[in-house]
Design a protein around this nucleic acid. Sequence first.
DNA 1: CGGCATCCGTCATGATACTG
DNA 2: CAGTATCATGACGGATGCCG
Lengths: 227, 227
Amino acid sequence: MGSRSYRQFCSVSKALDLVGERWTLLIVRDLLAGAMGYSALLEGLPGLTTNLLAKRLKDLTAAGILEKRPAPTGETCKALYALTEAGVALGPIIGALASWGKEHGPAPEPTDSLNFRWVLILLGRHFVPDGPRWIVQLDCAAKSLQLRLGTPKFEGVEGTPMTPDLIISADPKAYYELLFESTAPESLLESGAVKLTPGTAGDPPLPIWKDFIRSFQLDQPAPTPST
Amino acid sequence: MGSRSYRQFCSVSKALDLVGERWTLLIVRDLLAGAMGYSALLEGLPGLTTNLLAKRLKDLTAAGILEKRPAPTGETCKALYALTEAGVALGPIIGALASWGKEHGPAPEPTDSLNFRWVLILLGRHFVPDGPRWIVQLDCAAKSLQLRLGTPKFEGVEGTPMTPDLIISADPKAYYELLFESTAPESLLESGAVKLTPGTAGDPPLPIWKDFIRSFQLDQPAPTPST
DNA sequence: CGGCATCCGTCATGATACTG
DNA sequence: CAGTATCATGACGGATGCCG
């Protein structure tokens, strides 16, 4: 509800009337990588309290930005919150915020929390299709991310792939440095911050790693969107 | 100050740490069209109180998003607040919000306030360069906006041009309908909501009006930015 | 335990008055 | 004109309780 609307004849303020409150765009950011249950959302957003999450979910549902639907059988939760078409359309806003924050935002601190979903968003913005079709598994803090490289459309979901071609493992900070280019990819390998494990087919890991770097342009500066 | 930082290892949250608070992005939006004084900002943002504006300006200055500089002689105010390079770089975020709000935001209400600066932002996002080089004056509620069409770079400032080729006058609501395509441009002319006056050179107004419509693609849907 | 609702303390915000 | 000071209110952070 726009109980505290700006009441301006301007679409920027109308957008902020719906998504301008605290935590709202961060909830949308996490849902951009796929539908989530209530507890998963809460766990992924440290500092957000349960009462406020309930209110945000209710308001966002009323605004038509997300919808609550029954979870498929076998899920650990009962209901999933998923973005509607209008919610997915918030992607460019999240993307523009990510670009600006990366360039002009405050530097991250070691105590900052890191969520694997946020990695997906970053990767999706850098993806270059039509490379070799590797399946890469990212491991971080007992969680896994499954990436399908080389496909026309970027695919990445949480979980372990059946037949990975390469397994990359690192701690959150190393992933952050890799994705934010504060460190060159090669030096992360040399320092041991990032470890490579051959996949099930047993291919040598280094060429696949180079394709991974190239697929997400991790050795180049991020593109700046136009106005 | 990020006194209430999200503390997440994510550039989206880092951006919101600086510009996520209430009113902040609306201040930036207004400054995107040019530097403004304190009182002009306050007047253009109904509902924002003077103490909060002072705090926002202080915080944004500390964050390096805008800078306070002495006003040029002849100005009505003493100091101007101008966006820094980092502040101008927020443009794509404002643009993405404008696109989304236009498509998915709540409908405007007749009591909403309208600021001529917001028109400039909308026009800038739709501009197609290299048409005929007309100078068009927009009149609305005792204020004037000066647009230079056809130049490679879009130019628009508040004030009255010396030699307009066409003067368009309408009330705020008609401008909004024109810019937001809820009504076709032709019908706004026919209904008398928009009035055309020949400029100093005395050219017939209708062809220049059609160039104006074409220059800002006001008869076409807005382009949707990519993720 | 997942999915909230309630209660309370604190802080950000809104309204008004006042000052250099 | 360009803010600062003061106070009231509502939003938010934290803990806990309820209900399937």
